[in-house]
Design a binder for these strands. Structure first.
Lengths: 137, 137
DNA sequence: TAAAGAACTTGTAACCATTACTATTTTACA
DNA sequence: TGTAAAATAGTAATGGTTACAAGTTCTTTA
């Protein structure tokens, strides 16, 4: 884990008190942008903190969600996946390798009249299919 | 349940053999476009078929999904919800009343280069927020 | 510096939608 | 009508997540 000061500031600037678990989880999320599951995060952080409990990871995830430094993805798989990139962007889930690929969304043109006076707080775009790699092999 | 012949043909034309449960489930889905959960469907169909088991509803849903007459929605709620409307369209989930509203999507402009040579089979768009009704009250 | 309270972490048990499995019933068809 | 296949029911298991209680660490303040 490097740049501990950076990680600390990252958390503090989002009103999260730094703790060993939180710093480790953040470090993992920043360096492994694979949209990991809670278990992925647990396994990774447990390497540095052998006493780590699953509950602490769920607590950490809940806190990160609440403070807005990660977003949750519901892909139809049974586990949630999490993304340290919180800006609005699209996700492509490969049905074969289960990898998720990010892509930028410029605009969504939709029938605004149907959502007239609706307060839209979140926009999620999920594509599913087969990624280039999996088609080639 | 009316138009049994229509419902039968609906199923048969999608390679689904009509059975009492399937006809009842289809009837419910066509008449109640509320994006119901498996339990919603179970409760509704059980009124007509008291011996109905939950498993049969899950079997029916799986079959309907496989044959493409419904689509599954993953909204972040723990239960899946299902939509008899399978054309590509957007869903708005109200965080307050949990109702889902459909809206038409004309186009999504995104960075195609990121998905170059990807096979896109499914496009899901989910907005979350507060619906008009819930804002008013 | 120490006590007290708050925050954090752990471990276990419970939750609950869904799936697996097996047995039973119904349907299709020769 | 008999037999195989399909459909249905009922129960148990699965597994990600949450609830809860107890223990530990940190922070504050006298």
């Amino acid at each position: 884990m490097q740049n501990i000061e950076y990680l600390k500031q990252y958390l503090i600037s989002h009103e999260i008190k730094p703790s060993t678990i939180r710093l480790n989880a953040l470090d993992y999320l920043l360096k492994n942008r694979i949209h990991p599951t809670a278990d992925d995060i647990y396994e990774a952080v447990a390497k540095n903190i052998p006493t780590l409990s699953k509950t602490s990871i769920y607590n950490t995830i809940d806190l990160f969600l609440e403070k807005g430094i990660i977003q949750a993805l519901d892909t139809g798989e049974k586990e949630h996946r999490f993304d340290i990139e919180v800006s609005t962007h699209g996700h492509f889930l490969c049905r074969n390798c289960n990898k998720i690929f990010d892509f930028n969304i410029d605009s969504i043109k939709y029938d605004q009249s149907k959502l007239d006076d609706f307060l839209i707080e979140e926009r999620k775009v999920l594509f599913k299919g087969i990624c280039k790699n999996c088609q080639d092999s």
